[in-house]
Amino acid sequence: MGILIYGIINSIVFALIAMGFALVYGISRLPNFAHGAFYILAGFLTYTFLLGLGLNSPTSIILSLIIIAGIGAAVYRFLLIRIRGMEASEIIASLAIGLAIMEGLRFAGFRGKTYTLPVFLEGTVRIAGVPVDFQRLIIIGVGVVLIVVLWLFTHHTKVGLALRAMAQDEGAALMLGIDTDFAALIALALGSVLAGLAAIVILPLGNITVETGYDILINAIAVCIIGGLGSWVGAVIASFILGFAQMLTVYIVGAQWQMVVGLLAIILILIARPSGLLARQKELEERV
């Protein structure tokens, strides 16, 4: 029972982590390898506002989300916009930007295990005999709400449908008068906000370290690859697959294998079924 409940929590954590990456790739076909850096940056920003400057929590959360959105948008507007469509360059450049942000944070003094965000609510409840703390319940709440809202947005609103259409054929979208650059800018800002939001609800469970940023990036990529890059529903289902796979691995084999699951998942899925476990026939696109 514990495994089931914590498996679900773990899966929702994965969904939250991957959502930003999936959104950016889904709309603008841009693999944002700076995702982990945005996540960890949001954590440190909130920490600074909350505990360094002593602001109250809503203000610090909103402030850091605004800043992280601005950074995401700026990275697109001033850097990535020039290399749109050159996939290798996009990966290398965003990875380098992410590295610079993360190692810059480390250089600025954010290292060691002393940085923690406070939990929103203290206390635990028992669900079916398993103790679950309120913070994890909040994660589930935020996660489920975001999944539903984003699904409704992309599948049932005009703007969302337009964005998805754009992802499928940018040339056609351009001809129909959709400003694809602006849409990508918004996508990156939104994706960064999602990364920040995930950080703010998840990080109180542990310490904020720069290393987390790398793991977040790997997990986000793993979820998106398993679900099929650019697929929404796929990403959500994939986070449950990966969430439980990781949970069981840790439970059966040992905690040191935690990150290996995601990494091996990426490698094996890409080799065996590059379009993802759940994707429809797209094979011709990925393979030569």
């Binding site: 290798a88 990966i91 990494l263 490698i267 890409l270 590059p274």
Partner: peptide, 23 residues
Amino acid sequence: LRGIYFAIVTLMYPLAASRIIEA
């Protein structure tokens, strides 16, 4: 594998190798 997928998978290989040796 096509370009982007090859790039991602090769990026993951060394990371996985070090984690496996560690584990």
